[in-house]
């Protein structure tokens, strides 16, 4: 049982590292064709921009805080150190605003974004398929 537990932990870590090695891409539903700037992506994931240009609510999807994808995404797009983000979200909580919803795998993020025309997320590039459209790529 103990070996199985260790195996699971190692397997999860390997998956996360493998995902981190593939370039990270920001994806939206395939029906969304408007370009999205890096600044806009940051504002969406900080919940400063809550609506798409067509008026529909934006649904940003995060990976969980401990994931490598999330750290890479935050460093590149949000350009803030972790302690800044902690303070920022604490302040938002004081005003009743919560961080974006999280999903625990890139595959789950892709499936969600592929199914919801208002969603936006980030995944490893090698998982991209026809259900989503890439709007930014981090090489």
């Amino acid at each position: 049982m103990r070996f199985f537990g260790i195996f699971c932990i190692v397997a999860i870590l390997c998956c996360d590292l493998a995902a981190a090695e593939s370039p990270l891409v920001v994806i939206v539903h395939r029906s969304r064709h408007s370009p999205i700037s890096v600044e806009e992506v940051a504002r969406i994931f900080l919940k400063k921009q809550r609506y798409w240009k067509d008026g529909a609510p934006v649904v940003p999807i995060n990976r969980e805080a401990r994931s490598a994808s999330r750290r890479v995404f935050e460093q590149y797009f949000l350009v803030r150190v972790r302690s800044d983000l902690v303070a920022y979200w604490n302040e938002q909580y004081f005003h009743g605003v919560f961080p974006p919803a999280t999903l625990e795998s890139d595959e789950a993020v892709k499936r969600y974004v592929g199914a919801d025309s208002n969603a936006i997320g980030y995944i490893a590039a090698d998982l991209v398929d026809d259900s989503v459209r890439v709007v930014h790529r981090l090489d």
Partner: peptide, 14 residues
């Protein structure tokens, strides 16, 4: 320095 997520969707460890 780990950002607490929304309890509705936070991962099971948090």
């Amino acid at each position: 320095d780990e950002i607490p997520d929304d309890p509705a969707t936070a991962p099971s460890g948090a």
